[in-house]
């Protein structure tokens, strides 16, 4: 069963642009990305859109559908009112390249700044003995498909471009949480995540969790636990006094660390 679907797609580039209306044929069971492809194949051959797997696994086709950050491939047309015009715009937080494609290099730079997994002296070489109970928390964060929807929706950078210099964003807070909870990781990145990556900018308003297509509990399971872990080492005199928590490879070792510089001969 096919029907006419009304789309309003932002067309333009860094020099400006506007919303343009299209009417395309849509079929039962289709998703927004199908409609965009249809537009591209029949009416706007050069309509720029980023996509790969069309199965919600690669996280490429991120855009804003009726103002909400979403994966176009996972947004079914049946979720809209019949006759409703669907507005599709590029991610707002990042510089636009063309049409629905934005420059997300901010995220790749932040990825580069993550001090990587570093095995403990106790188990320096794989295979590691690690138990399911100990890897499970980090496994949740490794489900991340890097669609950057959380980065895009977070008001810290969405509404304040200048904060990009200080704030890594939810995707990277789950990465730091993943490493901090990794049962065989030796580095302590807590000062680094607070002081250099801007964990403190987060005011836990949970929009990252709301838009995550993988349903990762970004705020409850990663950011808040990280804030608590940071509090342990930075803000809680009692823990520091009583616990004498061993700060394995403390901030000193991270001072020497620079992305990409520590390895190559």
């Amino acid at each position: 069963m096919s029907y006419d679907l009304k789309l309003r797609i932002w067309r333009g580039d860094a020099n400006g642009g506007q919303l343009r209306d299209y009417v395309v044929q849509a079929e039962e069971g289709q998703v927004v990305l199908d409609a965009v492809h249809r537009t591209q194949a029949t009416q706007a051959n050069d309509l720029a859109v980023r996509w790969n797997c069309k199965a919600g696994k690669c996280g490429s086709c991120s855009a804003e559908v009726n103002g909400m950050p979403r994966l176009m491939c996972m947004t079914r047309l049946s979720t809209f009112e019949p006759g409703e015009t669907i507005t599709i715009t590029p991610l707002r937080t990042f510089p636009v390249i063309r049409d629905l494609v934005t420059d997300v290099s901010f995220n790749y730079e932040r990825a580069r700044q993550v001090p990587p997994f570093t095995p403990t002296a106790k188990q320096p070489k794989a295979p590691f003995t690690m138990f399911q109970a100990d890897v499970e928390r980090s496994q949740e964060f490794r489900k991340c498909i890097e669609c950057w929807l959380c980065q895009n929706t977070c008001h810290v950078v969405r509404d304040h471009e200048e904060n990009k210099a200080a704030f890594a964003g939810p995707r990277f807070f789950i990465r730091y949480a993943e490493l901090d909870m990794h049962p065989n990781d030796a580095l302590d990145r807590k000062d680094y995540v607070q002081d250099e990556q801007g964990l403190g900018y987060c005011n836990i308003t949970k929009c990252c969790t709301e838009v995550c297509p993988e349903h990762i509990k970004i705020t409850d399971n990663a950011i808040i636990p990280m804030k608590e872990r940071v509090a342990d080492v930075k803000y809680d005199p009692l823990v520091r006094f009583l616990g004498r928590r061993s700060r394995r490879n403390g901030p000193e070792s991270l001072k020497d660390w620079a992305p990409g510089a520590h390895h190559h001969a």
């Binding site: 932002w10 860094a14 400006g16």
Partner: peptide, 17 residues
């Protein structure tokens, strides 16, 4: 800064929700 900055898509509305 390691990433490019540039103009965002010119959309004035506070939200399109």
């Amino acid at each position: 800064q390691g990433w490019r900055s540039g103009p965002r898509a010119a959309i004035q509305a506070r939200t399109l929700r």
